[in-house]
Design a protein around this nucleic acid. Structure first.
Lengths: 227, 227
DNA sequence: CGCAAAATGTGAGTTTCATCACATTTTTTA
DNA sequence: TAAAAAATGTGATGAAACTCACATTTTGCG
């Protein structure tokens, strides 16, 4: 990985990790097209096994229950891939993906993808790392969901989303809606609202507009270690 | 995958999926040793990044919370690998693994593992599939945990563990303890006990010894679709 | 075989949240 | 920019399930 030069995709994204040669190898097989916000890119019921890449924009993968409740989602920024599970193991797709913003999406067949995946070492490493990453993330979400209270899960989520803005202070630039937060921490919109109010009363957070400031990272972290 | 002959590992295991040549490629780098029941094979605090394989016996991977509660586990039967996450992404280990039964465990260095992983196509495919599998499994556990009641989660778990024994009947040969079941479905030992009693009262299940019979798969499945 | 340890069954009390309901504010978009 | 749609704040209520407690049964082991 040390010999990779930067490519046009953001650091941390799967395509970035593939390196310039990896991206080139993939791109020779893909075709790009544009999607308007909210338009569906793939749905669970699709029977193809194509692989997709976010060339530009932002997509969102979401899982719904039978009665339509959204239970899991993850955002796919520029440089991320999706649809790879079906391409790897041949099982049906597990999620729906739609464009969150105006997006440019690349698409390629599973067999071409597999060919590059098995041939190009840095592509291979990038996807292995990506998969392991998702597993680690899911496990910790699972552990959190079963051991922490709603308040603690909210704090954990806020801490994950923030960037350090000052000594002991954190900033979440664009806070998701309470509904989205609730989905992220497996809770209810109302509960999130209540816990937010409590945190504000305690002087731990401060909101203006879509931005949220964590006024004391230290005290917020303390909440997580109590049991 | 079609050209693989059978090897000595059980169908469905990672090593089986690696094929005879894959296993051979791996085995040239590993050393085997024996572990008595309950002995620890790797713990979270270990700083090495070796990869392990269950050559024979049964191991268990478990995650604990800070206060010692077990929150996640998965059994690793003959032919399964563990310790591969750290070997792939270089991050610290995420779980503890101990021998559940007398076991023969193979061990190899991360760099040798990576070399085979990137060189041998069927090994590569086997591990990709394994990772995807775990993701699918974790996601569905996550969805279940947040949308189903304790009773429903228990039923889902029993259905997963059983084999069809007669028309509309299922059999779980060796039912785990209620404590283990509780861990599997993110619940409490007492809750599992109560729900089990209810199911027995309803004539849905029947126990003798460690075996449990599901008397009507159909009615048990019905419970899952109610909401 | 017999004792100790583990696992199970069940009651009672309490806490946490999920749910419903609505007023109010903010954001979209036609 | 006005109307419509989303998002938010908060109260009241009830059900689900966590906790503690202890009697009983089963299992494992010396």
């Amino acid at each position: 990985m040390s010999d990779l030069e930067d490519n046009k995709y953001p650091e941390g994204s799967t395509l970035h990790a593939c390196g310039p040669s990896g991206v080139e190898a993939l791109a020779q097989f893909w075709t790009e097209s544009n999607f308007a916000p909210r338009s569906v890119i793939v749905s669970e019921s699709d029977t193809d096994d194509d692989v997709f890449f976010v060339v530009d924009g932002l997509a969102r993968a979401a899982t719904f229950t039978d009665n339509g409740r959204e239970v899991l989602y993850s955002d796919l920024p520029r440089g991320d891939a999706f649809g790879i599970f079906a391409a790897i193991d041949g099982q049906p797709r597990s999620t729906n993906v739609f464009a969150k913003e105006q997006s440019r999406i690349a698409r390629m067949s599973a067999s071409n993808f597999r060919e590059v995946l098995h041939t190009n070492r840095s592509v291979n490493q990038a996807f292995l790392t990506y998969l392991v990453d998702r597993i680690r993330h899911l496990s910790s979400r699972m552990t959190e969901a079963t051991t922490l209270s709603t308040e603690q899960r909210l704090c954990a989520q806020l801490l994950r989303m923030c960037v350090k803005s000052a000594p002991d202070q954190g900033l979440v630039e664009r806070l998701p809606t309470q509904q989205e937060l609730a989905t992220l921490i497996s809770s209810q919109r109302e509960s999130v609202g209540r816990e937010m109010s409590k945190l504000k009363d305690q002087g731990l957070i401060n909101r203006d507009g879509k931005a949220l400031t964590i006024l004391s990272l230290r005290s917020m972290e303390t909440k997580l270690s109590d049991f």
